[in-house]
């Protein structure tokens, strides 16, 4: 039986798809048989971020409507052989997704995968609700910014009330906080919410902190999940997060401003904040 993980946030543009691509790739690199599903019907983008946009033939809606078999729609990643991608439809609308259809796909994938990642669309409409419905675990992607934190809190409420686990009154969906676009320099200047503040407000276990990084745009430009860029701090941060997800104890990095410590601080070893 596979574990179903939803990557969600409520708010758009915080890094859900970047995270889904990186996380799925990271799990697969660790030898886990992983599939990542794009739930953003009508606005698919996971294919681009994963660099498989030219290989899309069938999509999740084709499978649900019986126009293609699941195995035909799955795209095998060429970099990591334990990874595959199920793209969303670009032409249909969200109503083409049904709970029964998605349930069948997840059940079928569950038989021969370790992890099924569901890349949620923004909002709390049908696509987002279906992406989280079958989840065993949730990665809540949050930027250190008021609207993102509020929407994350909202989506946590939805997970606790509208997921299958909640409906069946089973153990609740296991929640993980992933703070992205974190800028330690601005935090030090008091311009950005501190990690501790976000943690205190949302009160769920911290999985990782991904620093604001130029490498994320470069990764999306080239269709390479940022976790494959192990030179970059964002890529390393995702790798750490995957390790923590798999139960390893890894210290958090990139929480303090880089190097540029002044002479005074270097001499006296003072710590920022």
């Amino acid at each position: 039986m596979a574990q179903v993980i939803v990557v969600t946030s409520g708010k758009g543009g915080v890094g859900k798809t970047t995270t889904s691509a990186a996380f799925a790739t990271g799990l697969a690199q660790r030898g886990k048989k992983t599939v990542v599903i794009d739930f953003d019907v009508g606005l698919r983008n996971l294919d681009l971020i994963m660099g498989v946009e030219r290989r899309v033939v069938f999509d999740i809606v084709n499978v649900i409507q019986g126009e293609a078999r699941l195995s035909q729609a799955l795209i095998r990643d060429k970099r990591v052989d334990t990874l595959s991608i199920l793209p969303a439809s670009q032409t249909r609308d969200k109503d083409a997704l049904t709970r029964e259809g998605v349930g069948q796909i997840i059940e079928e994938l569950s038989a021969d995968h370790d992890y099924i990642l569901c890349d949620s669309p923004a909002g709390i409409e049908k696509g987002a609700l279906l992406a989280l419905y079958f989840a065993d675990q949730a990665v809540i992607v949050t930027n250190p910014e008021v609207s993102s934190v509020r929407d994350s809190d909202r989506i946590l409420g939805v997970l606790q009330s509208k997921s299958k686990r909640a409906e069946e009154k089973r153990d609740k969906v296991k929640e993980h906080l992933l703070v992205t676009r974190y800028d330690p320099e601005r935090v030090t200047r008091g311009e950005m919410l501190k990690l501790e503040d976000v943690q205190e407000i949302l009160a769920i276990p911290l999985l990782g902190v991904v620093p604001e990084s130029e490498s994320v745009l470069r990764a999306s430009n080239t269709g390479t999940p940022v976790i494959l860029d192990q030179e970059s701090n964002a890529g390393q941060a995702y790798k750490d997060a995957v390790s923590r997800f798999l139960g390893e104890s890894v210290p958090h990095r990139f929480l303090e401003p880089e190097r540029k410590a002044g002479l005074f601080r270097r001499l006296f070893g003072g710590r920022a904040a």
Binding site: V146, G157, E191, D197, I201
Partner: peptide, 18 residues
């Protein structure tokens, strides 16, 4: 610095929304 304001505003609005 405005980060503290962000935190306080969030705490209030979320307390009510919860």
């Amino acid at each position: 610095p405005s980060a503290n304001q962000a935190k306080e505003r969030l705490q209030i609005v979320l307390a009510h929304e919860r």
